[in-house]
Design a protein around this nucleic acid. Structure first.
Lengths: 130, 130
DNA sequence: TATAGTGCTATACAGATGTATAGTTAATAT
DNA sequence: ATATTAACTATACATCTGTATAGCACTATA
């Protein structure tokens, strides 16, 4: 995780770390699913499980724990009977929305570009002379 | 890969697909490293390998192939002796810069927020009454 | 007392992902 | 003739990620 992004970013090592941080939070099959469900407000364990239909409780637990350690999610124990536990995004977690938005934008553009490109090109290997 | 992001995005299934597309391109240990090295212009196999110091040729090959299939990278065979092969970003691949930029931004903000937060809070489990 | 719900954890496993090491082909350089 | 460079590929292995299944401790309700 050191000198990989050297080419564009050789000037600033901090940027590489920042990118790596974000990637670590974002990657994993259920991370963004959990963040997305929490974007609409605080939720309890089983609410999250229900919102992400095909996730197992083990994965809910694991992903929430990792997100908490990374400062994206906060776990609130509500002192009532029975004890309830609520999960919510930290301010930092909420700001992830902007990253998600850009990713959605790119995905949409990319889909259009590649679909149009399909008609123009015929081979998937372009040979030019040099 | 279906109904996971239902909570914010239940209205538009296309957005979910777009997000998933982007995640598929972005995830994997070396994907963005390769994209980053290509942001500064077309490069050959061994140039990429050298730029990303600790990657093996097998991984260079694999990641380039996947990026090519996903329409992010184009492979140009230069008809010379010896045959050379150049890799470059497609227009779509270049636009990934915006996603990367947002990810770097978030990473930097996040780092600052969590470092400040460390001093204010003492426990990592906050108990409130309800 | 029995059953169901909440918020998890444990164990074992399967599959995906990445690594290490070596080898191939073909051309130029010494 | 031998070494070196370029652009890979093959094999085997290790590690990481996610799944399946089960269970626990507690509380509320019938």
């Amino acid at each position: 995780m050191d000198s990989r992004y050297s080419d564009i970013m050789k000037c600033d090592r901090g940027l590489i770390m920042a990118l790596t941080d974000t990637l670590n939070v974002v990657s994993g099959k259920w991370k963004l699913a959990v963040v997305c469900t929490l974007l609409s407000g605080k939720k309890r364990f089983t609410d999250i499980q229900r919102a992400i239909t095909d996730i197992t409780p083990r994965m809910v637990s694991k992903e929430l724990k990792e997100l908490e350690v990374n400062g994206v999610v906060r776990r609130n124990v509500i002192n009532s009977t029975p004890v309830l536990i609520e999960y919510e995004l930290t301010p930092s977690g909420e700001q992830l929305y902007e990253v998600i938005q850009k990713m959605v934008e790119w995905g949409l553009q990319h889909r259009e570009i590649t679909l149009n490109g399909m008609e123009e090109r015929k081979a998937d290997e372009v040979i030019i002379s040099g």
